[in-house]
């Protein structure tokens, strides 16, 4: 039987040493995302300036997938325009549904390590938690 684990160094490193897990006092938007299944609970904080994500962070608890995924997401979107960030979000959500091409995967950089989550329905919600929360913030901005 094939081993489809996605717990490699990139993921565990983002989980144990997240770069963006801290408070952000002057955030413009703060939104909670909850996945009752795993008990994952994150607070996403975003500061937007002139249509661009100037700074962002997250706080909360949860499984390694939810935490690492949120951290990798922020690596990718900080500094990007709102439109670009939404495009990334869309790309990631499509990757989790197994609908992305190789070149699209490259755009997602480290976050592409989560592509095998698409084979694990029970963990999809953990992987997309941060992304859904960001999408909600950006779409309602």
């Amino acid at each position: 039987m094939e081993n489809k684990t996605f717990y490699h160094e990139i993921l565990t490193d983002h989980n144990l040493h997240p770069a963006h897990k801290h408070d952000l006092h002057d955030a413009d938007y703060v939104l909670e995302g909850v996945n009752p299944n795993c008990g994952d609970d994150i607070w996403l904080k975003v500061k937007i300036n002139d249509g661009r994500i100037e700074q962002a962070s997250f706080l909360g608890d949860g499984c390694a997938i939810s935490q690492a995924s949120a951290d990798m997401m922020l690596d990718l979107v900080i500094g990007k325009t709102k439109e670009d960030a939404l495009r990334m979000t869309d790309l990631f959500l499509r990757m989790i549904q197994g609908e992305t091409t190789e070149s699209e995967l490259e755009e997602l950089e480290e976050a592409s390590v989560l592509q095998n989550v698409s084979h694990m329905p029970a963990r999809v919600k953990c992987a997309v938690l941060g992304w859904h929360t960001l999408k909600e913030i950006l779409e309602n901005e």
């Binding site: 008990g39 499984c63 694990m120």
Partner: peptide
Amino acid sequence: VHPHDVASILDADHIAVRAGH
């Protein structure tokens, strides 16, 4: 280690356990 991660890692080695509440 979060229990869902424990279960996923065991699952990768084809061991079926339950995790959660």
